[in-house]
Amino acid sequence: MVSTHAGRALGLLVCLLVLGGCLVLSLAFGAKSIPVTDVWHALTAYDGSEDAFIVRDLRVPRAFLALAVGAALGVSGALIQALTRNPLADPGILGVNAGAGFAVIIGVAFLGLSSTGQYLAMSFAGAVVTTTLVYVLGSAGRAGATPVQLTLVGVALSAVLAGISAAVTLLNPEVYDAMRGWAAGSLAARGWDVFHTVLPFIAAGLVLALLAARPLNAIALGDDLARSLGAGIVRTRVTVVVAVTLLAGAATAAAGPIGFVGLMVPHVARWFVGPDQRWIIPYTIVCAPILLIVSDTVGRIVLTPQELQVGIVTAFIGAPVLILLVRRRKVSGL
């Protein structure tokens, strides 16, 4: 773990360089590999060739969407872990992704929704309702909203919503055909319109996350001590819930329910910088897109000329990492 500010800043700079390298690789590799020199030529002197079209019109918007969605998923996971003091929490485990996905499927099946903008509205509604319901049910009893209760409620609600979503999808062939790629979590066939639609919401969520970092450090010490330090507990919790809703809702609307990103990356950040949210969140903003971009690139290569959805790749990576996190709980605990 890096303890000095200079060391943490240097580590963040290294992560930024790695992210830049991953972006370049995502533009060069896929069903068709393109030399880096041709990638540069396509970006600086577009000539309408096939390679230039693949790079500039297909892979660049996809890479930027992976950048935004990765940051959104990672930071939403970091916020939920800090708020619930549960190192094994993420938007998927607490039902946020399931709620957002369920709302989109209901919108497609019964309201005839078809565009990303329409998906976005339903996704936000589902994320808000699910987040509120999990917190209310998890707060029942004398103990209040304990990490264990929130996790159990979230997992149970996710299972119920997933079951209903599966039933609706399987009973309606048109919905199944429209949602099969989205439901697995995919960045394929997403253009600049999708990126521009979700970017304002993701940007607003990231700003709120950064603003909540300092009071979250105080809340981690306990509510009583946080109050004595002047932290606004209710205000911070509302800010975090709004940020998670914006981030998880926008990411799910754009790319479908992608799991494990919000669980893994905050742990990796804590291994390097400790429990300070003022560093965890910036590290997560940079490192989560690295995971998603690499997963998306791998998914385009392993089944060439077909593609493996990025949500499936992150699940393959996430299962063993989850086991590792459970075994090393003291190392990455909050």
Rank of each mutant, 00 (worst) to 15 (best):
G256L: 11
G222Q: 08
I281N: 03
L210C: 15
A209S: 15
V268W: 13
L291S: 14
A254C: 10
V240D: 00
W279P: 12
L263K: 08
G262P: 02
G256H: 01
A209L: 06
V294F: 08
T236R: 08
V238F: 11
V286E: 13
I219C: 04
A213K: 10
D296G: 12
F260S: 05
N217F: 15
A213R: 02
A226F: 07
T239K: 11
V240H: 01
A226D: 04
T236V: 04
V265W: 00
R235P: 03
L247V: 12
R237N: 14
P257C: 08
V238S: 04
L208F: 12
W271F: 15
P215C: 03
V294C: 06
V286T: 10
D224G: 06
P215H: 09
I233G: 01
W279I: 07
D224M: 06
P266V: 08
F260P: 02
A251F: 00
A209Y: 07
L210E: 06
L211A: 12
H267T: 02
V207Q: 10
G259Y: 03
P275H: 09
R278K: 14
A255V: 02
L221R: 05
M264V: 15
W271N: 11
D296F: 07
G262E: 04
G222T: 14
L208T: 03
A231W: 11
G262Y: 00
A226N: 08
G256R: 04
L206H: 02
V238Y: 04
H267R: 05
L221T: 12
V294S: 05
A209N: 00
P257Y: 06
T239F: 08
I233F: 13
G232P: 12
A218R: 04
L206E: 06
G259T: 13
L216S: 05
Y283T: 12
A288E: 03
G222I: 13
D223L: 02
R278Q: 00
N217R: 08
G222R: 11
V242H: 07
G262R: 10
T284C: 07
L211W: 13
A218K: 01
A220Y: 10
W271G: 10
I219Q: 11
V241W: 05
A226K: 02
A254N: 02
D223K: 06
T252P: 14
T284S: 02
F272W: 14
I219R: 06
R235L: 08
L263T: 13
L225T: 14
P266W: 01
I280D: 02
